[in-house]
Design a binder for these strands. Sequence first.
DNA 1: CCAACGCATGGAT
DNA 2: AATCCATGCGTTG
Length: 920
Amino acid sequence: MSSSSSSAKFCFNSTCKNVFDRPRKGWRRRTGEFADLCDRCASAYEEGKFCETFHMNASGWRCCESCGKQIHCGCIVSFHMFVLLDAGGIECITCARKSFILTPNPAWPPPSFFLPVLPERIKDLSGKNWCHIAGSGPVPWRQAPSMFSSSSAHSELHPRLPFEVDRPSGIDRLIGCERLSASSLEKKKVDDSSERLMNGSMKLGASEIVENGNAGINCGERTIPCVNIPQKASFPRNSTSNSHFSLAVSSTPINEANDQTKVSGTHVSRLTLSTGIGKQVTAHNGADSSSETPLRNGRPRADARARNQLLPRYWPRITDQELQQISGDSNSVITPLFEKMLSASDAGRIGRLVLPKKCAEAYFPAISQPEGLPLKVQDSKGTEWMFQFRFWPNNNSRMYVLEGVTPCIQSMQLQAGDIVTFSRIEPEGKLVMGFRKASTASTSNQGSETIVAGDGVPMNGNVSAKKTKPGEVLLTPHKLKGNSISTGFSSIDQANLADQASPWSKDEKSVSHSKEVLGAKSSFRSKRKNSTLNSKCKRLRLENEDLVELQVTLEQALGLIRPAPNCVPSVVVIEGCEFEEFEDAPVIGRPTIFATDHIGEKIQWVQCEDCSKWRKIPADAFLPSRWTCSGNTWDPERLLCSVAQELTAEQLEDLLLTNDQIASKKIKAPKQDLDAVEALEGLDALANLAIQEEGESLTSSSQATTKHPRHRAGCTCIVCIQPPSGKGPKHKQTCTCNVCLTVKRRFRTLMLRREKKQSEKEAETTLNQSQQHPYLPEKLPDDFIQLSASTGNGSPNRKTVSSDEPDDDPSRIRSSVSPFKGQIDLNIQPERDEDLSPVSDSGGMIKLIQDATETYLRERLSSSNNRSSPASNEKQLGGGIGQGGSFGQGIVYGSKDGVAEAEHSVASSTKPVASLSPER
DNA sequence: CCAACGCATGGAT
DNA sequence: AATCCATGCGTTG
């Protein structure tokens, strides 16, 4: 995307030819480069006055049907300043935007993201033809169909002609355009029309459209939909969205429009808008387009999906809100291209997103080599990602994939079942990737078959199929057996996977399995069994009730908990995971990521629930569980979602990775004991929390890693330049990253507190204690024991260990620890379980205690007679982190799955109600 | 041995 | 019947 032009020294404007030293970017040329302009021209261009200034005498001037403003419609320079009305005439972008979200002028230039490597087909683009189009003159698509006469050539290059023709813009498409037959062109025009017809229809109403079409354009210019190209009548009748908006515009008789089969042609369908809808559209026009009206799906914009060569499930159902999010407050025009529900594979750690073939071929640059091309994609937050767009030969065909999507998927916190949308921003031509959480998508996706449980939890099979990240807590409504839990896979697949630990076992050995926590009382049901997550993907369907209704990562769960405003929680660490203890019931707050800004100030990063942008807030800020940019009172400049976020993609990733690290410390969890979760009824509350937060705090849910071991040194592909998710650099002991600092700080607090309490207790019951805890000369900090706030509403079978009677159970802490020798035998099994559930915490608490004990002992040993100092603790902790974050390193765990333990711990720490007491 | 790669397989459309 | 595409799985580094 160099902005250089061959004649770098002269203004690209032929009527100017000023010489300049530093070229300024003008419009994008068909080659993808920008026209280099002199200051004057550039200014004129930027101000939108280029045409009036330099093309005043050229033909092709039109008046906006709405405001009357004159716009030169014949040149590339102003192509983005107006939209064609299907009914004829044009509307300036300003008016158009007021009316509706627009799609760009299809026949025009191209997506910059294709440019890094120009498709071959672009290279042989004939500038001549382009000139016809781009040059001053009448709107090309209405005027020069004859210039395209060779469709065969095009077909040659693009077997997927229909798509190319169909697709609205893009240089590649454009190129195809030049080779299109007249009919193709017409089709394209039609498409164009339909793309914009919303504007006309909105304002004019169905019946007016046709008439009006003449108003703006000469009859002769009106496009006749070309339906003579045989095309599969794939226009789905069941698509309300489509049918709703099919309405013949332009010259297509309205009554014909409703005949889907007749207009099944790519262009034709695009060109159509159903009469009946005209009014709806009109009505829609009046209302804010972002409103969630029933029309949302079928809004005119959807006409783009009339590229009915695409399977309905790929039709972009992007909502106005989403578009708004993508475009922000810029004047960009968004062209929804397609969407895809993420499969388990897509969202998996492989980092490969399978692209629907037709979509890939239609909207992405043509690639002739399997290696493909790097593709820059921007997400809705403005973050740019670089993916490798490539394909695999497959049955005489190709299978297109985007590689290296893991970071992005993670960033957007997507899981299987969620939907990613691909759009293009014009005039920049950027490819934008939006997303829609499964839970959200369902409301508007009849075709996507996503179902949301009544409570908002995605019922999506994909979701359940989602790979569980180690450390993740899976909450399921039903008791799941064996390893086939919550795979969300069909029975067939499960059968196939029978010999595997889990569907993920192949790629992820340490998968944590879902656990039952909610019990049968859950109202979740696979309501949509056959409904189709993706009707096509049986694997993603829920075949039985063994669904994972809810998933929460440990981190997520923890993230939900906040100390009461005036409460300073103490923190305990279990295998590197921090658990905050609350004297008072914790408050459920918006998960944030603590960090330190560039000036060393402690801050928090919080993600807006609406726009997903991350905002910086004070470290001491406490946010409600639902927080949006509008609540960013600390930074007035970022009160709006439309304001870009401060974090760069890199920083965000680092942040997320860092944030992930803690949670991922338990990754290598041994096989878990499913029974261990049976009695976690206390997790109901957590589950509810998770439900509330579902879809917004899954930062660590998709721990995907994308390594490319085969990449050669120096490889700069996306995969190599983007560190694998969750694979951030190890922390050094001296690391001062936020994670380490936080851990150190918290641990310091913890230990200080411990010291304090211990001193107090020792003064009173030293003797007694030593008798009761022969192996534990020093009482553990109460903090270690009282994980949960003693709110008194704990679950019945959970014993809340009061901090003032930490030693009431000699067997609680069983580690054979000799403070004098520094030896710890943590394999000792509890001699007696407390009245805990059968599950018995077994691991979490034990480890917690063990870890703490060991750490403390170590510290004592190292500091000899001196009481451990915060500094020493810090050091140890830092080291622990540096080693991979396992604070329990070196400790032989008593038993059970680390995940189960962790979950258990989470449950207890998360839910004040469920106080756990160590059972040793 | 593991993580990736990339082709193969087979269910779904 | 052909094609698509999600995932399997053998190979490779």
